[in-house]
């Protein structure tokens, strides 16, 4: 199960940057480890994370096996009008997750 914690302020000021925090629950298996029988555990890391605001990409990241488990991302977004942040990420196993967070511009 892949879950996430997303933190966006309840209200954002127009044209003022606000902080977005995203923490994805993911083991970020490096592919370098072996199980108890000596068999390699296949790599499974979150590959691409994108964040769109009203359709526009406002943040994108490519993660790799060097990133610790449960990746934690902080970035800033500036909003001109109210809308919705859409987060999307996909891991090596092909699991794709989409999460949404509304933003109200006051």
């Amino acid at each position: 199960m892949m879950e996430a914690r997303i933190n966006v302020p309840a209200k954002a000021a127009r044209n003022e940057p606000f902080e977005v925090r995203l923490q994805i629950r993911h083991a970020m298996e490096t592919g370098y480890r072996t199980d108890d029988t000596g068999k390699a555990i296949p790599r499974n890391v979150v590959r691409n994370v994108t964040c769109r605001y009203n359709g526009d990409v406002v943040f994108a990241a490519q993660l790799s096996s060097g990133i610790a488990a449960n990746p934690y991302l902080r970035f800033f977004v500036t909003a001109r009008s109210s809308g919705e942040l859409v987060f999307e990420w996909v891991d090596d196993a092909g699991v794709r997750v989409t999460e949404r967070a509304p933003v109200i511009v006051a």
Partner: peptide
């Protein structure tokens, strides 16, 4: 609390 990964388990 927002940086503490333990809260992923609290949420679940």
């Amino acid at each position: 609390d927002l940086a503490n990964p333990g809260f992923l388990w609290v949420q679940r």
